[in-house]
Design a protein around this nucleic acid. Structure first.
Lengths: 211, 211, 211, 211
DNA sequence: GATGAATGAGTTTTCATTCAT
DNA sequence: TATGAATGAAAACTCATTCAT
C-alpha cells in the first residue's frame, strides 16, 4: 500500500548469492538501459540478460519501479564514492586548489558511467535528482570548504554561494562530459569551470543591473 | 522510409478549424504530460482530452512521436519568442546590463510553462535539446554581445566564453525556475547568476590549480 | 438490407462523366491491387489515386465490396471479350484446329492483364470464380464445338468432356501464363495443352485402373 | 531484420502441454478461417477460440503472419503425408495403374480438409503454393514413374510431361474436390482425370494446329 | 527458493463509412 | 453533386506481474 512496500527491495540480501543476484539484475538493467534506452527496458529482458528467471527477479524487486530506484541509488552511491574519495584527500592548498579538486572530482564521478548517467537523467520518469541522493554530503562538504576559506570568499551568503557552486559544477561538468562540444577539449572546459567558480566566489554579490 | 514520413505533421493546417484542432491536440498533450508524465500519455487520452476522435488526431499527426516532436517544437518556439522579444530591445548599457537582460530573458522563457518544460526535458526519450532548436540564434546573440563589449571581457577564447555563458545561464536559470530551492528567492538567484557570469567574463582565463 | 443494395453499383452511370469516373475508380483499384496487393488496397487510397474525393467514390459504389465486385466483373468481361472475339472466327478446320484456337484464345485472355488476374484470383476474399461470370458462354461454346465434331470425340459423356476441357485449359493456361516455369516456353506449353486436350477427347472413357 | 524473426514460431514446443497449445492454436485458426474467411480471422478471436489468452498465443507465434505460415505448413505436411503413404505402396501394375494410384492419392490428400485448403489457397495473401512445399518430392516421384514406364510414354520431353501431369492432377482434383460440379460424381471425375492423363502420356507430342 | 508459462489490460494505429458544408 | 474532415470500432501486439509446479 504505502510506497515502502513497492519501492524498496523486497529483502535485505544477506547471503552472498542474493547479493550477487541483485547485482546481476542491476547490471543487466544498466546495460539494457544504455543499449536500448528506457523504452527498450522491460523486466523480462532484464531477467533474461541477468541469466535468471522473471520470477526470481520479482523475488528481489517487487516492481519495475523498485528496480529502477535501486539502480539509480546504486549509481548515485558509486558517484558519491568516487567524489568522496577525491574530496577526502587532505586539503593543503588555498581555495583555488580546493575548487579545482572539487571540479576534478565531479568530472571523475561523471566519467564513471557517462552513458548510464545520461539515460538515467534524461529518460527515467521517476528520476530522483542525484543531488538529493548524493547532494547532502556534497553540500556539507562545499559549505565546509567555503567556511574554511571564508576570507577568500567575497560572496556574503555562503548558503547561496554553495548552491551556485554545486549547480555550476554539476551543469558544466555534465555538459562537458556528456554533451562534449567538439570545439573544446575536456581539460580546457574543466579549467574554465574552475575559473568561473573562483571568479564567482571572489566577486562580491553585486546589484543586478537593469536591462 | 525516411523519418519525415513518421515524424512530420501529416498536413499543414491552413483552415482556421484545422489550426485550432492542432492547437487543441498539442494543448491536451501538454496538460496530460504535466499531470501524468510521459508514461501517462497515450494517444487515446490526448484525443479524448482534446475533445476529438482518435482518428482525427492521426489525421494531423502520423504517429505519437510526431505529436511529441510537434509539441516540443511549439514549446521551443514559444521560448524562443519570449527570449527574442526581450533580447531585441535596444542595448544601451554596458556588458553588465546586457548580461542581466540576457539572464532575465532566460528566466522569462523558462517561466512560460515550467512544468511542461520539466517533463519535456526530463522524460522525453527523443527530446531534442532546446538549445538545438533555440540555441543557434541565441549563441549568435551571445557571441555578438561579447564581441561588442570585447574590452570588458577578460576571457581570451570568446567561443568558449559564449558556450560557458549559455550553459551557466541555462543550467542555473533552469534550476532556479524548475527546482527552485526553498531557501532563496528567484530574484536573488537571478542576481547571483548575472553576477557569476559577469565575474567569469571579467576574470582572465587562468591556469588550472592542481588539487 | 439485401445484397443488391450493397453490392450493385449505386447508379447506372448514363452520363459520360459518370462512366469516366467509374472507370477511373476501377482503374485506380486495379493499379493499387497490382502494386500493393489486396492488403494495400483501401478506399481512401483508391479515391486519391483516381483523383476524386472519397465521398464521390461512395456516390458510385456503396461499399468497398461493391467496388471489388465491379472490378472483377469488368475484368471478367474483358477476358470474355478477348475470348469471344477469337472464338467467333469462322471455324473451318477439324476438331484439332478448333481446340488449338480455343487454347490460344484462353492464352490471349489470360495475357490481358495477368498481374491483375493473379491478385484477383489469389487474394480476393469474395472472388467470384471467373468461370461463373465468363463460364456460361464458354461452356456453351465448348459444348457446341464437341457436338459439331461429335464423330472425332471418343468420350461418351459430352457434358463431362466439356467440363474437363474447360478445367484443363483454365488450369494449364493459367499456370503457363502466371506461374510460367522457367524450363519451358509458353508456346511449348500451349502446344502441349492442345495435345493433351486432343488426346483426352480422342480416347474413349476408360475404366479406372486400380492402384 | 530478417524474415525468420517474424515468420518462424517463437519457441519449439517440447513439452506435451506446449505442443497441445500450438495444436490448439492452429486448430482454432483453421476453424475460424473456414467459418469466417481470412478477413474474419484475428488473433484475439483465435486465442479465445483456442481457450487461451492472447499473450500465450504471442508466446508461441511472434506475429499473425507466423501463425498463418505455421498453419499452412502443417496443412501441407498433412497433405504430403497422405500423398506419400499412398504413393509408397509397391508398384506392380503398369503405367495406367500407377497413374490411377497417383490420382487417387491426390484426391485423398485434397479430401483431408478441403474447406481449409480452399481458404488457404484462395485468400491467403502469402500463400506458399503447396506444390512448393510438397512438390519437390512429388515431382521426383512422377518423374521416376514416367522413367520407369518409359516405353509406355509417347511424349518426348519427360520433364514437360511430368509438369503437365502434376498440373492436370492438381487442377482437376482440386476442382473435383473443392468446386465439385453437381452434375458428376467424384468417382466419375477421378476416372476421367486418370484417363486424360493416360491419353496425354500415350499420345506423341504433336504439332500445334493453327486456329 | 526458483522457474517460466500464462495472463489480459492497455497501447498504437488503420480504414470503411458518414455527413456537414 | 462533390468534397474531405471526422468518426470510432477493431485489430495487432507488448509487458508487468502472478502462481502452479
Amino acid at each position: 500500500m504505502n510506497e515502502s512496500s513497492t519501492l524498496k527491495p523486497r529483502k535485505r540480501p544477506v547471503q552472498k548469492r542474493a547479493i550477487a543476484m541483485v547485482d546481476a539484475i542491476l547490471d543487466a538493467s544498466a546495460r539494457i538501459l544504455v543499449e536500448r534506452g528506457y523504452a527498450g527496458l522491460n523486466t523480462n529482458a532484464v531477467a533474461q540478460r541477468a541469466g535468471i528467471s522473471i520470477g526470481s527477479l520479482y523475488q528481489y524487486f517487487p516492481s519495475k519501479e523498485a528496480l529502477l530506484v535501486a539502480l539509480q541509488t546504486r549509481h548515485a552511491q558509486d558517484m558519491s564514492g568516487a567524489l568522496g574519495s577525491l574530496l577526502a584527500e587532505s586539503d593543503t592548498g588555498g581555495l583555488a586548489s580546493a575548487v579545482a579538486r572539487f571540479v576534478r572530482a565531479a568530472v571523475a564521478a561523471h566519467e564513471l558511467d557517462p552513458a548510464l548517467h545520461r539515460v538515467l537523467e534524461k529518460e527515467l520518469p521517476f528520476f530522483v535528482e542525484s543531488s538529493e541522493l548524493v547532494g547532502k554530503d556534497v553540500h556539507r562538504h562545499v559549505l565546509a570548504l567555503l567556511t574554511k576559506y571564508r576570507r577568500e570568499v567575497a560572496q556574503a551568503n555562503l548558503e547561496l554561494a554553495a548552491w551556485m557552486v554545486m549547480r555550476m559544477t554539476e551543469a558544466l561538468v555534465h555538459a562537458a562530459v556528456l554533451d562534449k562540444p567538439a570545439a573544446f577539449g575536456a581539460k580546457e572546459i574543466e579549467t574554465a569551470v574552475g575559473g568561473a567558480i573562483m571568479a564567482f566566489l571572489s566577486s562580491p554579490a553585486q546589484q543586478a543591473g537593469n536591462g
